[in-house]
Amino acid sequence: MLPVQHRHETWVFRGLLTIFVFFLLMPILWMLSTSFKAPEEVFLKVPTIIPEEPTLRNYMRALTETRILTYLYNGLIVSMTNAALTTVLAALAAYGFAKFRFKGRKSLMFLMISAQMFPYAVLLISLYPFMQRTGLFDTRSGLILAYLVFAMPASIYILFSYIVNLPDELIEAARMDGADEWLILRELILPLLTPGLITVFLYSFMWSWNDLLYSLTLISSETKRTVGPGLLLTFLGEMEQDWGAAMAGSVIVSLPIILAFTFLQRFFVQGLTAGAVK
């Protein structure tokens, strides 16, 4: 049995944890709850958590009366392409930084990582005219490129931590076996890097999927809009606020991320903690 003092500490800890979990889960619970409520129930003075008369009307409205499917399609195209490109390019860069010695290696790596130091919004100011001048403004390619700039530094660093821990002797053994650098990367490094690659893929996918600022600024056509700005501009206008449909839309656009996480979260946690202990 625990001493009295320890029992008190345990209860304090549990209390704090409960408050923390409440604040973490409340918005999700609220989103789910509201998405099943009729419009009149949404604005009750005493809000309900469990809808009195659950309805799928919000979902129907979100799917049929808005362009949410277009936003989903655009979001998937942009996020998948960004995630795939980030993963491939970051793996190549990280392999180079981790296993090859060349002049300026450390400075170059520092330069790449230092892109993280600039506030997200600040770089948009310089990216905006660049996109306009290069004809990439209001294109999905331009948006992908912008996301790539921001996802790459952290992704390179994550994969670098993985690769640098792979023994050099493994690569040397492959060289002795006759493998060239591409084969070593394909047959040896990438398979051993799977958790790291999944981590980076998920990270960059989430990054672009959840973005609002860049997508809102760099995309002006309704048909190219992604989920963040799409939801905002559709449901939360100045004159009208359709919270029920907005929440139903939010649930729909959260599904890809929830599904991806459910299947891949084991790798994601492994990936983020890799190299923490030897």
Partner: peptide
Amino acid sequence: IAPSKRGAAMVFQSYALYPH
């Protein structure tokens, strides 16, 4: 001459077996 073309094979201290 490249390591693999020299006609030599090496056994490493850590064995360096491909884990996958």
